[in-house]
Design a protein around this nucleic acid. Structure first.
Length: 651
RNA sequence: GCUGCCUUAGCUCAGCGGUAGAGCGCGUCCUUGGUAAGGACGAGGUCCUGGGUUCAAAUCCCAGAGGCAGCUCCA
């Protein structure tokens, strides 16, 4: 006798088990027609599976905003993709095809009639999409068929990957094995699948094959390499189009493209993963570095600088030689081995260990714009976001166990303050809290305290977090801060990690004299706000689409004389701005005003000032912003004041 | 690192067995023009590298390097 609670709180009661479709029909015929699935509690289900127990339910209809609806549509679209490819290459062996954030993929081995591997390329997409459109147009029902585990194993006999899936399902305790046919089971195409699916292929109007890539079976490098076909599906063509437009927009904002166009930096082909900063890019970099330097200085940090090259012996003691060797560049001199530092922590401990430390010096917040070099595999490199040489806004806080809560809380507060200055408010920060892993060092009491401090700090800072159980480092729990940019993309930046291990006697043996007059090991908090400056600038370029706010802008204002007659005045205006600490230039080309404006806007100059005869006479300039909005004709003094105020406000 | 695709002028790209091309940018000259491209002329190439096939290779084949996407990893 299920009693079902609807999202608005209304309840429906039934005398006997009902299907989702019957529930929808009892609410209204139009809803029943539109329904593609039902959410029972937290589980999304097919419309025609019976509901036997009380539950809160929600009827799912096609929607571009509802993640549950998209999940269902995309899961079914993956089947249609697989069916289409199987129709074109009947010997294809399917592996696994789940919905993902922006669509779905299907891993498979595509085989031709001779059993040879087929490599799919963009050229095949049209053919596949055409086949998919046929299947959608045929409006075939998704039909579920549950069979016994024995029968399930029999049906997947000889189908390597599906057989494996069935075995895994049984190992996890499945009593039956389910198949979904598009049409009639045993007659039409079918696929081993747990479901759920939409009722008919006809609701999958807006599907698209996006790309192909390689992927490993079970993500295991030593296992079979499969073809992964990516696709996406939306409730309607409008949703799909909006998605494609967003991808286009992301491509336009690509920091590698803008970095070249705006002459910010380059990465040399012969020197992968190393950034050459050009004057304008370096201007952004220095603004960022100066900003962080001022912030941490105001928050009780001291700044240090440690060497890039450090001896193997140090890395052995720190444990990096064991755990991180593959990612380190090494070198040698006079038969001694050295490594370029991949992290700054051992260097900071070396400084901490000079002389005797007293508990009175704690917490000691030691910061460094630390140049790190890591030998990342070539495939991992990406523009300036993922490089081999980068600088972290790193710091290590040496403190006592008792100081952990306040230090973490203080850090989270500072981090929020910094992120806000770049336009990332609370709603654009995602916090991941990684807790104790199975393999770990330290006592449970230490872990309890460290985890409690991290959770507490987030609550105090009004930041909600998602827990990643068991994902902490072996030496301590950590928080990771991810920014959501203007296009909704995620970028992990800040972090804070609790470490009892590195300062311990077994590792680098840092000590201080406590109140009791005996030696103690400090706790170390590894923390960064921006992460790497290179990566953060890459994020900012894409977030702002190259149109930096005034305080970060490499060219804050360009003066555009209408004719050469105004050149001397234009130079005076620019000189006045520069004297006030602003980044100003003059367009000295012989172009017409229209061309100068076009160039200034293409260069993403934040403001430009037109000066003609009228302005020279009046001692003013005609101000305009990047978007081309006219902002009046302030005097030179008013202009300086106005720009300085905007820089100070960081807007 | 693995799989796939790509590599032609500074940039974006066309050409795909038979003399190396376009637009933008760059240089020189003319033009002194009030809000998103004024005009003329010119310079600029190891068609990624090495090997092979061919009378002939930017073009076809093989290997390598680098780039891109994904996988894995990660700031």
């Amino acid at each position: 006798m299920p009693i079902l609670t609807l999202p608005d709180g209304k309840t429906l009661s039934f005398d006997q088990p009902v299907t989702g479709r019957q529930v929808a029909e009892s609410i209204g015929p139009r809803l029943a027609q539109k329904a593609i699935g039902i959410k029972v509690g937290l589980e999304i289900r097919d419309l025609d599976r019976p509901i036997t127990a009380d539950a809160t339910i929600r009827i799912l209809t096609p929607s571009n905003e509802d993640p549950d609806s998209l999940f269902l549509l995309r899961h079914s679209a993956a089947h249609v993709l697989a069916e289409a490819i199987c129709a074109l290459w009947p010997r294809t062996r399917l592996a696994y095809g789940p919905p993902i954030d922006e669509g779905f993929f299907y891993d498979m081995q595509v085989l031709d009639a001779a059993g040879e591997k087929v490599t799919l390329s963009d050229a095949d997409f049209v053919t596949i999409e055409k086949k998919m459109a046929e299947i959608v147009k045929a409006d075939k029902p998704f039909t579920r068929c549950d069979v016994s585990t024995d029968e399930g194993l029999k049906r997947t006999e000889g189908d390597l990957y599906k057989r494996d899936n069935a075995e895994r399902a049984i190992a996890k305790g499945s009593q039956t094995i389910s198949f979904y046919a598009t049409g009639t089971p045993g007659q039409d195409w079918e696929d081993l699948c747990a479901g759920p699916h939409v009722p008919r292929t006809g609701v999958l109007g807006a599907v698209k094959v996006m790309s192909v890539a390689g992927a490993y079976w079970h993500g295991d490098q030593t296992s079979d390499q499969l073809t992964r076909v990516y696709g996406t599906c939306f409730a309607d063509a409008k949703g799909l189009q909006a998605h494609l437009t967003k991808l286009e927009e992301a491509k336009k904002r690509d920091h590698r493209k803008l970095g070249r166009e705006m002459a910010l930096f380059h990465v040399d082909d012969e020197n992968p993963g190393q950034v050459f900063w050009h004057p304008k890019g370096w201007s952004i970099y220095r603004t960022l570095e100066d900003y962080i330097r001022a912030k941490i200085s105001a928050n009780g940090y001291v700044e240090v600088k440690t060497p890039s090259v450090m001896p193997k012996s140090l890395w052995e003691k720190s444990g990096h030689w064991d755990k991180y060797r593959a990612n380190m560049f090494t070198t040698e001199s006079e038969k001694r081995e050295f490594a370029l530092k991949p992290m700054n922590c051992p260097g900071h401990i070396e400084i901490f260990k000079q002389g005797l430390r007293s508990y009175r010096e704690l917490p000691l917040r030691m910061a460094e714009f630390g140049s790190c070099t890591r030998n990342e595999v070539s495939g991992a490199l990406h523009g300036i976001m993922r490089v081999r040489g980068f600088v972290q806004d790193d710091a290590h806080i040496f403190c006592t166990t008792a100081q952990i809560p306040s230090e973490v809380a203080e850090f989270v507060r500072l981090l929020k303050e910094v992120y806000r200055d770049f336009g990332f408010g609370d709603d654009r920060i995602i916090v991941k809290f990684s807790t104790r892993p199975a393999l770990r060092v330290g006592t449970d009491a230490q872990w309890d305290q460290a985890e409690g401090a991290l959770a507490d700090a987030c609550q105090k800072a009004n930041l909600s977090y998602i827990v990643a159980p068991g994902e902490g480092a072996f030496y301590g729990p950590k928080l990771e801060f991810t920014l959501v940019d203007a296009l909704g993309r995620h970028w992990q930046c800040g972090t804070i990690q609790v470490d009892y291990q590195l300062p311990s006697a077994e590792r680098l043996n840092a000590t201080f004299i406590g109140e009791d007059g005996t030696k103690h090991h400090p706790v170390m908090l590894h923390r960064a706000i921006l992460g790497s400056l290179e990566r953060f600038i890459g994020i900012l370029i894409e977030h702002y689409a190259g149109k930096f706010p005034l305080w970060l802008s490499p060219e804050q204002i360009r003066v555009l004389p209408i004719t050469d007659d105004q050149l001397p005045y234009a130079r005076e205006v620019a000189a006045g701005l520069k004297a006030a600490g602003l980044r100003a230039t003059v367009d000295e080309t012989p172009d017409k005003l229209g061309a100068k404006i076009r160039l200034a806007r293409n260069d993403r100059v934040t403001y430009f000032a037109v000066v003609g005869e009228a302005e020279v006479t009046a001692g003013t300039i005609a101000l305009q912003n990047q978007a081309g909005e006219k902002l009046g004709t302030p005097t030179r003094a008013e202009l300086v004041q106005r720009l300085l105020a905007e820089v100070a406000a960081r807007t």
